[in-house]
């Protein structure tokens, strides 16, 4: 598409009127309401479905949904996830699930928040959820272990409940 460029009038070619009107506009902005969010004191409202940091979830019965299949560990591009699987002990309530993470660590220094872990998870046990401010004073602080990830994740209702049918 071609747009005809209108030739400038003498008045416009002076430029000064346009510059002055522009300066008036910017001057008026000096007194407008500012949009800045003063972050640490004011927090943004996190919408539902926000993809923050990866967390582990439990179902309504309090079962850790992760079965330590290590697919997230495999798919993780920066290799931030480390899982140590274990078998449920013989007297455990969910013995029939067989496998559960003994340790589940996410190195939040390495995590790039890509969401592949959530996408690959066959048990819907790992989600990218609300927490977005991930800080720590040492590398060790940034190693999030299973307990911390479960605490951040909380409960995610499981509509299928496949382990009750097994």
């Amino acid at each position: 598409m071609r747009i005809e460029r209108k030739p400038l009038t003498i008045w416009e070619r002076l430029y000064l009127p346009a510059i002055i009107s522009g300066m008036m506009l910017t001057f008026s902005h000096l007194f407008r309401k500012k949009v800045t969010l003063r972050y640490p004191e004011q927090k943004p409202e996190i919408p539902p479905g926000y993809r923050g940091q990866p967390v582990l979830v439990k179902d309504e019965d309090g079962r850790v949904k992760c079965v330590a299949c290590q697919l997230c560990e495999f798919v993780c591009p920066p290799r931030a996830i480390r899982i140590k699987p274990m078998a449920y002990p013989d007297n455990a309530k969910y013995k029939k699930v067989e496998k559960t993470p003994d340790e589940f660590e996410i190195d939040m220094i390495r995590c790039i928040f890509c969401g592949y872990c959530e996408e690959v998870c066959p048990e819907q046990a790992i989600f990218l959820r609300g927490p977005y401010s991930v800080t720590g004073l040492s590398r060790k602080d940034m190693m999030f272990n299973k307990e911390k990830l479960l605490e951040l994740g909380g409960t995610m209702p499981d509509p299928i409940k496949k382990w009750q049918k097994k």
């Binding site: 290590q70 560990e73 699987p85 078998a87 496998k99």
Partner: peptide
């Protein structure tokens, strides 16, 4: 070896 490690690793 059961539940120790995924073979692909």
């Amino acid at each position: 070896f059961r539940f120790k490690m995924r073979v692909w690793f």
